[in-house]
Design a protein around this nucleic acid. Structure first.
Lengths: 339, 339
DNA sequence: ATTGGCACTCAGGTACTTCGAGTGCTAACA
DNA sequence: TGTTAGCACTCGAAGTACCTGAGTGCCAAT
């Protein structure tokens, strides 16, 4: 068990290092904080912390820097989530009001989050996993093409154009639309492909090909929607904290440009405490993110989590405020989606 | 008038500098190229080029580097557009086939362009300026909300949800849909707001409020669509060429994250030769882009230019291949949109 | 357990030197 | 007139040496 004062020393090291970017030594520590003991005593504590691999000295005659493990202990046991100040709350309020459109709401959210944290912010589009079909619309969009619109009960709307390769028979389209809606209204997206299986059989042989085409597209669309999407903002913030990344930030930038990586990362992260999930440094198994930390929180609609949002930055980030910001933005977004 | 051989020297300097990233001196020049004259003669030519402000010496005892003006003369008069090699053409072909959806097509295009050029690539969404209405659809999306879909004759589809604040009367929606389509089919987007002006009067007073709401939303949507949009890819390429940006790349990244700046920039650029438009270094009046070059080309649908695409990189970029790539991708995109 | 004392380490800064690629100029040459 | 060889000069980059001081670990005393 690590004694109380040693943990206080760790907290002080993390805080000072985040604030100054400088490795922090025993002397600076005692006069910046009032421990009531001498520098030599602090040194003993530091030796203990080093043994526990919570801190680490870049070289013999330098101060100490927290390790990933040190940061982890800090956020889990030593840090408090800083409440946002009035200005920040105001920024959130004004940023989030007055947008009805999902695209715009999420766009604003991601920019807000990146401004608030000075990190790279990401927002995942709502997954359709638990959603069900509210309505399917088929609209002739040209001589041979039909626009298919899929509306889900969480308000998400997806559209896709299907080219039938032959002239459209409007009454047929109407009939198909009616049948599809009868069959699928209220059906969870996950069961759509089962439900529509035999539908082509109820049409005349001449039309079967067209029905199959449209149905195949519908299924593809439902599936494609499970393919999730992420939007980013504030990549330049990463460059500003470049010196925090040993080597180059290039791999980091590449990783965050690759949606697949981010989606995988996000999906692996389950809410821990405060409703926020963290990955610190090497806890990220992804090549290129081993010097980065990720802060993620879920946001909800109709009482269940539909997607996540968060920030990515150097391990030397201000966890307290970033966790607070991510959490607050997630809550406001949940609220905004409530309408 | 600058003599022929001096221009050849300039060409050699630009090419060598692009290839090596090193300021190029008279000696290296003569043994890399066969000018048939001595280094001293080349030095005389260089003195001339320096007087014309086409090249510039970073310091007294270093080689020369092209100025913005030098690059400009190079691309205007000395460079040939390199034809793409087989592998590149293949990459374009495979990348662009098999996507019907506009979003996906443009998404692929921008990634393709960034891969091809190793620069930051951008693609502007088609403007609706010259487009006209093909069809308007109104679909109840919940008890009180209506999904409005606007289809334009260039195949673009926009949707928006309107909350009527009261329960929906389906026959009324049907009537309004019919009237709107009768009135607006084939009408250019720019005239939509004029056309629909009096439409509310043809409905009973009880319904006027709802009609006005929907119409207002329609107009807003048409206008909002004139607000253009750009997608980017390959920001990490910028970081890889970081040393080409004196000071920091941070302002460059900020500039390209700011859609408004890019849109303004793009709109100012009119096609020059080869159908491609260039801005080199300080020709970009935007703060933060004064060390960057921009290569842009328009792409077309139905015979008229609908939007632009291009790349952004350091002034020390390979203009010949980048111009070729931008032009080729623009053409393929035009072709892909033809279907 | 805490502290003062002390020898030790080592990154980073400063000062100095060397090296060499590249220059501009001049005088000679074709 | 254009070209060339020769030469003195410049100056950044790289190497060397040295110093400084923040920080350390350890020990003996409290």
């Amino acid at each position: 068990m690590i004694p109380e004062r040693s943990l206080e020393v760790l907290r002080a090291i993390v805080q000072d290092y985040i604030a100054t970017k400088e490795p922090v030594g025993s002397k600076t520590l005692v006069d910046r904080h009032s421990f009531g003991v001498s520098a030599a005593t602090i040194r003993n504590d530091m030796a203990l912390l080093e043994e526990e691999e919570l801190i680490h000295a870049p070289h013999t005659s330098a101060g100490r820097v927290p390790t990933d493990k040190g940061y982890r202990l800090f956020v889990d046991r030593l840090s408090e989530v800083k409440p946002l100040n009035a200005a920040e709350r105001l920024a959130i309020e004004t940023f989030m009001t007055g947008s009805a459109d999902l695209d715009e709401t999420l766009g604003r959210t991601v920019r807000l989050l990146s401004q608030l944290t000075n990190q790279v912010a990401m927002v995942q589009y709502p997954t359709l996993g638990k959603a069900s079909v509210r309505h399917i619309e088929l609209i002739p969009a040209s001589d041979t093409r039909v626009l298919m619109v899929l509306i889900t009960d969480n308000g998400r709307i997806q559209q896709h154009v299907v080219d039938l390769g032959q002239n459209i028979d409007e009454p047929f389209i109407g009939e198909l639309r009616a049948k599809l809606n009868l069959l699928l209204a209220g059906v969870p997206l996950s069961s759509v492909s089962n439900k529509v299986e035999g539908i082509a059989d109820s049409f005349s042989p001449a039309l079967k090909a067209q029905v199959s085409l449209i149905v195949a597209n519908l299924i593809e669309q439902v599936d494609a929607n499970r393919q999730e999407k992420i939007i980013l903002a504030g990549a330049s913030n990463l460059v500003r904290s470049e010196q925090d990344f040993p080597g180059s930030i290039s791999p980091v930038l590449e990783a965050i440009e690759e949606q697949v990586i981010l989606l995988k990362l996000i999906s692996e992260m389950q809410a821990e405490q405060h409703g926020v999930s963290l990955r610190i440094g090497r806890e990220n198994t992804f090549e290129g993110l081993t010097n980065a930390s990720v802060v993620v929180s879920g946001y909800e609609n109709q009482g269940s989590e539909i997607a996540k949002l968060g920030v990515i930055g150097p391990t030397r980030m201000d966890y307290s405020t970033n966790i607070a910001s991510v959490r607050a933005v997630a809550r406001y977004l949940t609220k905004a989606l409530g309408n």
